[in-house]
Design a protein around this nucleic acid. Sequence first.
DNA 1: GCCAACGTTGGC
DNA 2: GCCAACGTTGGC
Length: 134
Amino acid sequence: MNYWLLKSEPDIFSWAKLVEDGQAMWDGVRNYQARNNLRSMKKGDIFFFYHSGKKSGIVGLAEVIKEYYPDPTAKEGDWSVVDVKPIRQLKRIISLNEIKQTPQLQSMVLVKNSRLSVQPVAAGEYSFILTIEE
DNA sequence: GCCAACGTTGGC
DNA sequence: GCCAACGTTGGC
């Protein structure tokens, strides 16, 4: 079991939309590093759903329900998608600002490479974030 | 809306 | 293969 963090612009695809739809195909990834991470995701892996933009932060927990397959929205190139479903919303949004100010989370990819849209999360980081959720 | 950081493209 | 120019992302 691995943990991840996937980013989305809420105007493009939001947590609310994922909950409303019940599941989704995570398409549109056009960055090789992000794509490779996407391909490493296994069925049952859990990830943080992160909203980028004005109110950037982690909003929910979701799960991979289907491993990678070709991205039907890609006109050219070798791109992939996975299918996901929501698990639950976090009790509060864990903002990027808070993550940056939390010493235990300084090694997160989010802090070091904020642009990567599909990134791994260490098990320790995952469990720590859940402890500060309350 | 600006701009820093990063990735990609293409000329040489 | 280097690197300048350009495009995109995303925080502020």
